[in-house]
């Protein structure tokens, strides 16, 4: 297993290299660059801008810039933000925990909801429960995240109020009430709406997937055997069937991670959540390319790490898999 993990890591290095080249040239070959806003400002002279370009090394040939960036990155330095004049490492380090918290909790909520729904739907396929769950999950899957987010703000922040205090039920801005940072309950309270917006679609998707993968498993011989032997329903469903049905889910989750980050971008913007998605978004608008590249590279690394973990989890769940 250890050699397998090491091999996977080794394999991911060329992938990261390809990604880095692709991204760097895509971001840096665009005209304009980070000084566009300055160019438009009538108070800033063209000479000043040229001097600044020189200082930032923006006039060097692209391969030279790439080499410099790659060299720095390999030594663990993602460079300095052009706009913020701060190390990109530091900026990303501030945001990563927030995004991981949001995505992690959403993910947990997704699994807690999706597994029972999927199992129950598969248990009595084409029953009333199954049909209504299909409908509910399809609804969840068909609502654009940002539209849902806006709707949640309007319903739970603006329209419905606590009848006793007259305050809204849920807050919309940021991670904590002013002066209450570090308060876990307050944090959970702030997480409620963003997590709902982010996880609804995923609950739908995973419960559907689990349902069909359960149905496949239920047709397998060993489940039939277990049943014929008179095992209790719950044992059949949760012990035998779910265990095997969940395997493809693990792979799917790993593949879906990139999209989970995508949803996080919308949710972070709508709910003022200070995460990586917003950092990227602000950097994209300001063409702060060291930040842009840093965020994308770090996210790619995160995704690869999660993929490897998912593969290892797959093996752990399914002892039949041998890592040669």
């Amino acid at each position: 297993m250890r050699t397998y993990a090491l091999r996977r890591i080794a394999q991911s290095i060329p992938i990261l290299f390809i990604i880095s080249v692709m991204l760097f040239f895509m971001v840096r070959s665009a005209p304009g660059g980070p000084l566009t806003a300055a160019r438009r400002n009538p108070n800033i002279s063209k000479e000043q801008i040229q001097a600044l370009e020189e200082k930032l090394g923006l006039n060097d040939p692209l391969p030279v810039q790439y080499g410099r960036w790659l060299h720095d990155m390999l030594s663990g330095n993602l460079g300095d933000s052009i706009k913020f004049h701060r190390p990109v490492n530091e900026m990303i380090a501030e945001r990563i925990p927030n995004t991981l918290l949001l995505v992690g909790i959403s993910f947990l909520v997704t699994l807690i909801a999706a597994i029972p729904i999927g199992v129950w739907s598969a248990r009595k396929p084409y029953s009333k429960f199954d049909y209504s769950m299909t409908t509910v999950t399809f609804i969840g899957q068909s609502i654009p995240v940002y539209w849902l987010g806006l709707g949640l703000i309007i319903i739970f922040y603006v329209t419905i109020k606590n009848p006793v205090t007259g305050n809204p039920f849920f807050p919309v801005g940021g991670m904590n009430t002013q002066g209450r940072s570090g308060d876990v309950l307050d944090l959970l309270w702030h997480l409620a709406l963003p997590v709902t917006a982010l996880s609804l679609g995923w609950i739908a998707w995973y419960s559907r997937f689990l349902r069909s993968s359960m149905l496949d498993v239920l047709h397998e011989d060993y489940v039939r055997t277990a049943r014929a032997k008179g095992a209790a329903d719950n044992v059949v469903y949760y012990k035998h069937a779910l265990r095997n049905a969940i395997l493809p889910l693990v792979t799917l989750i790993a593949l879906d991670l990139p999209s989970l980050f995508a949803g996080a971008l919308f949710v972070e913007t709508i709910f003022s959540w200070p995460g990586m998605g917003r950092l990227f978004w602000d950097a994209a608008k300001g063409r702060d390319y060291p930040v842009l590249l840093g965020v994308v590279m770090i996210t790619a690394v995160l995704i690869i790490v999660c993929n490897i973990l998912a593969d290892l989890a797959y093996g752990w769940l399914n002892p039949q898999v041998k890592y040669d």
Partner: peptide, 16 residues
């Protein structure tokens, strides 16, 4: 390609 953070790259590509 599957490792790319889709939305980020979509935005970068659209601009590019």
């Amino acid at each position: 390609f599957l490792t790319l953070p889709t939305i980020f790259v979509l935005i970068l590509l659209a601009g590019f």
